[in-house]
Simulated assay, not measured.
Amino acid sequence: MAYEERTYRNQMKSEDLEYFQVLEFESDLFIGIDGKVNQPMLSQLVLKEVQQLRKAIFDYNITHPNFIESLIPLKADRLAVPIVADMLMAGIMTGVGPMAAVAGAVSKYVGKRLEPYSKEIIVENGGDLLIKTSKIRRIAIHTGNSQFQDLSLKIKPREKALGICTSSGMMGHSLSFGKADAVTVLSENIPLADAAATALCNRIKKPEDVVKGIEWANKIPGILGVLILIEDQLGAWGEIELC
């Protein structure tokens, strides 16, 4: 896959954080941490973590050849390594293949790796976010829909890391069967947030699907909020605070 410059990253920087990029084949992470932390050291630490996570996924696919390509849930595996087990469970809970949770799963373990070194953590992975913050932060929602320009989420301080994952049927290269301009899901289970965003976006093909989509998300344990944008319609549920 060709590298695509992610110009939106120039707009997401917070003045109180220092940022660095970790790039390993398709994995492209943009990370914000406390300014006083040893950034070069953490960059190498995260790179090694990403390499190990990617190896675990590809090794599992060798013994389970359908893992990476499957678009439907696969059975849970109590012998799988943690990242693979997380992806399998997220797929089961949302009705999609395990790779729908890969960005969120990688972010989860990168975030855990960073926790001993920084109180403030932002991990951006393909437009999906993990945020651990003691401050109120504003997260912009980017869509190609002119009716929803300058739309942002207000994220309040919380002790646990929060996943803010977005899927679009109109933008980006990720496979989607829906037509939503953007579907954003909030959860402290970051792989679940990622898989649920994909699954929910697949369900939104017209504005009339918004209500049913919210009802579907409301039934999944661990989902804290959803935002759906399609044409001139906006639907929100749970811990969604727009600003």
Results as ranks from 00 to 15, higher is better:
Gln147Pro: 00
Ile204Ala: 02
Val46Asn: 01
Gln21Pro: 07
Leu192Asn: 02
Ile223Gly: 02
Gln149Cys: 10
Thr63Met: 06
Phe30Tyr: 15
Ala196Ile: 07
Thr94Glu: 01
Asp59Gln: 15
Ala105Trp: 04
Gly169Tyr: 05
Thr184Val: 13
Asn189Phe: 03
Lys108Leu: 12
Glu4His: 15
Leu88Ser: 04
Leu29Ala: 08
Thr143Ala: 05
Asp86Ala: 10
Pro191Thr: 09
His142Leu: 14
Gln39Thr: 09
Leu88Gln: 05
Glu124Asn: 12
Ala85Leu: 00
Ala196Pro: 02
Lys36Leu: 04
Ser134Phe: 06
Ile136Arg: 14
Asp232Asn: 15
Arg6Val: 13
Lys132Ala: 11
Gln147Tyr: 12
Asp59Pro: 01
Ile164Ala: 09
Arg138Cys: 07
Ser146Cys: 05
Glu49Asn: 09
Lys13Pro: 01
Thr133Arg: 09
Leu17Tyr: 08
Glu15Ala: 10
Lys154Thr: 13
Val226Pro: 04
Gly222Cys: 07
Ser176Lys: 03
Ser107Ile: 06
Leu71Gln: 09
Val226Glu: 04
Ile57Asp: 04
Met41Tyr: 06
Ile72Gln: 12
Ser107Gln: 02
Tyr109Arg: 07
Ser134Gly: 12
Asp16Leu: 11
Asp150Leu: 08
Lys154Gly: 04
Val226Asp: 03
Val46Phe: 07
Asp209Trp: 08
Met93Thr: 01
Ala2Leu: 14
Val185Ile: 15
Trp216Asp: 00
Leu151Lys: 14
Leu53His: 05
Pro98Glu: 12
Leu130Trp: 10
Leu23Thr: 08
Ser167Lys: 08
Ala197Cys: 00
Ser174Tyr: 04
Ser43Gly: 12
Gln149Phe: 10
Gly222Arg: 05
Val226Ile: 10
Val185Tyr: 05
Ile230Lys: 03
Val84Glu: 00
Val210Trp: 02
Pro98Phe: 12
Asp77Cys: 05
Glu115Ala: 12
Asp59Ile: 08
